[in-house]
Nucleic acid binder design. Structure first.
Length: 583
RNA sequence: GCGCUGGUAGCUCAGUUGGAUAGAGUGACUGACUACGAAUCAGUAGGUCGCAGGUUCGAAUCCUGUCCGGCGUACCA
């Protein structure tokens, strides 16, 4: 279905052509001056230069040609050369009625759907999720849903950090604590125990301890590097221990992501790329792309015209172990072979942008991905506290994700109880939905690329531009619909300003969705539903729906708010949360 | 040093790819519940868009310079 703005541009372009000008000047945009018009066209001003005429004259000629057009209520040419347009009420309601019955509200998806691998989440095994992981999960989940809504085949891959030095650190620490375990006995030949020699909470304590120790204890650091090497070269004891770490960790991760309503299609990690490393290195070597530097094996990725210095990509460290860039490249090789993606999209902290630029260049140079495979890194900013510094707990430690979620949920639960709208057995479920909306909307409404201030008090306040505001709007609509008790689908031409504004807002659904999709920008979607919710609330305030005496008129109102509700619920689903029945 | 990125109301942020009088929220002040839910709505106050040049009919937006902040800059991830 053609977008309203394109439909209007078509009409105005035809008018420009009819008046003897290039139709390209007939591009219509949403008016920046709602007091003067709903849409505007500025084409007469650039056209004036080409045709050596007064811009107003050109605009006026176009206006004359549009005089009889049924799409417009008014067409006015004003001062320098603006063309101000107001839509005919019947034209607008017709458009909305078409949206009501159209698939995806008339949104045009991809004509040629793509296969996309989405790399997000990126948790480290054996480490608790903290607020830093929140952004990748929330933004990635939303982008995944957005891409799918446009018809693409998206494979969400959690890409766990399960293969680096961190694993060696844990293994080395375990060895110091429990040296008698069979995993450390080279002579051990029987089957290893099925039960892990640790719990998830022990694991979560072991890593930071080991990490801190390696920084002050050289001998321990050496042991950790050695354990990393042993693991990566298939030592049976290390491998068995690693499997325990994985099992315990993954179970915990699934539970945590489940709470966030974030799900992955594949749970691969860096370790899954391991089989691809050796053939990849061999291939790169055969191509003559690798060289030795200070004992390490590196690949140059500088390109003609580089303004900055581009360090080479290190693929094998001087101690023989592989690292981040190696596994990322091997993972690309794996993805290319398993999925043949048209695009690989990474939702990872923006501080890693140099790393990704190196990896992307290396992947292209080494022929690891096809030339047409699109590689993109969407880097997000840091989540800061109110002081503008990276978010910490009041005690100054790293805020665990579980605790953050618990704090918001507790606050919301209190509020839901106070309001006494929902019954006691529904309080928890309702509070969970509201908390999720507050948390996710609070994050997604900011530009992903920028750092943002996470202020629990502000998000929890629920006033103004927040997730709960959106939910409240939906809940209000639901309440009226259930009281009305019938279906209605026929929207009538608007009679009041509030009604027309709401309809205009609805009509712009596709525009905003496409912008959000094009830029992978959930904040665009947030801005849209905030505007739409505002329009709904204003309309709601000015219109008595249930006491309306004209039954036909009333059914029109119901049809209008039903469509509003469907669109709002569709959008919040794309953002990754949902509305309760009451709140 | 080099590179990337940001600087818009007291605070937190938008700004539809160059358009008319720069918008929201929050905080402050003032109104609207014997009306479908007041987690709402209406209004007042608050701005040299970091600074200086330039490009043109027109700049928060594009170019140049400059100041301030954040981040990155080969064997962590």
């Amino acid at each position: 279905m053609q977008k309203l703005i394109d439909l209007l541009s078509g009409e105005v372009s035809a008018a420009f052509q009819q008046a003897g000008y290039d139709p390209a000047y007939g591009k219509v945009t949403v008016s920046g001056r709602p007091d003067l018009g709903e849409y505007q066209c500025n084409g007469a001003m650039p056209a004036a230069k080409v045709y050596h005429k007064a811009p107003f004259q050109i605009a006026d000629e176009a206006a004359q040609a549009l005089r009889e057009n049924p799409a417009f209520l008014t067409v006015e040419a004003v001062k320098p050369g603006f063309l101000n347009l107001r839509l005919s009420p019947a034209f607008l309601s017709d458009y909305l009625n078409a949206m009501t019955v159209a698939d995806h509200f008339g949104l045009d998806g991809e004509t040629r759907p793509k296969t996309i691998v989405l790399d997000y989440g990126g948790p480290n095994v054996a480490k608790p999720l903290h607020v830093g992981h929140l952004r990748s999960a929330i933004i990635g989940e939303s982008i995944k849903r957005l891409y799918r809504y446009f018809g693409n085949n998206v494979i969400g891959d959690i890409h766990m950090g399960d293969w680096g030095l961190q694993m060696g650190l844990i293994i080395a620490e375990l060895r110091e604590r429990q040296p008698d375990l069979p995993y450390f006995d080279d002579a051990f030949s029987g089957p290893y125990p099925e039960k892990a020699p640790f719990t998830i909470s022990e694991l979560e304590e072991i890593y930071p301890t080991a990490s801190a120790k390696s920084k002050v204890d050289e001998d321990f650091a050496r042991k950790a590097h050695e354990a990393t090497y042993l693991l990566q070269t298939g030592n049976p004891g290390c491998t068995a221990l690693w499997k325990h770490i994985m099992a315990v960790s993954v179970a915990d991760l699934k539970q945590n992501y489940g709470k966030l309503d974030v799900s992955f299609d594949v749970w691969y990690g860096e370790s899954d790329a391991e089989p691809y490393i050796a053939p990849m290195l061999q291939d790169l070597k055969a191509q003559g792309l690798l060289r030795e530097s200070d004992g390490a094996l590196v690949m140059d990725v500088t390109e003609e015209g580089d303004a900055k210095e581009m360090p080479p990509c290190i693929l094998v460290k001087s101690d023989g172990a592989t690292l981040y860039a190696t596994t990322d490249l091997a993972t690309l090789s794996q993805r290319e072979q398993c999925f043949r993606p048209d695009k690989v999209l990474y939702i990872v902290d923006k501080r890693q942008s140099l790393h990704f630029e190196q990896v992307f260049r290396a992947a292209r140079k080494g022929g690891i991905v096809r030339p047409e495979t699109e590689l993109q890194h969407i880097g997000f900013g840091t989540m800061n506290g109110k002081d503008g510094k990276p978010f910490k707990t009041r005690e100054g430690g790293v805020m665990r994700l579980e605790r953050l979620i618990a704090e918001i949920t507790d606050f919301v639960t209190e509020k839901v109880r106070e309001n006494q709208i929902v019954s006691a057995d529904e309080v928890d479920g309702t509070a969970q939905k509201i908390a999720m909306a507050a948390l996710k909307y609070g994050d997604l409404s900011n530009l992903a690329t920028k750092d943002y201030v996470f202020d629990l008090d502000r998000f929890a306040a629920f006033e103004g531009n927040t997730g709960p505001y959106i939910l409240y709007t939906i809940v209000r609509i639901k309440s009226i619909l259930s009281r009305y008790g019938k279906e209605a689908t026929r929207i009538l031409p608007p009679e009041t300003a509030e009604e027309k504004d709401l309809m205009l807002s609805i009509s712009r659904f596709s525009d905003h969705l496409q912008a959000a999709y094009r830029d992978s920008a959930p904040n665009v979607l947030c801005a849209y539903i905030y505007e739409l919710s505002g329009a709904v609330n204003k309309f709601y305030h000015e219109t008595r729906i249930l006491t309306e005496e004209d039954a036909n008129r009333q059914a029109g109102y119901i049809a209008l708010i039903s469509l509003s509700r469907r669109i709002l619920e569709t959008c919040i689903a794309l953002l990754g949360f949902s509305a309760p029945e009451k709140m």
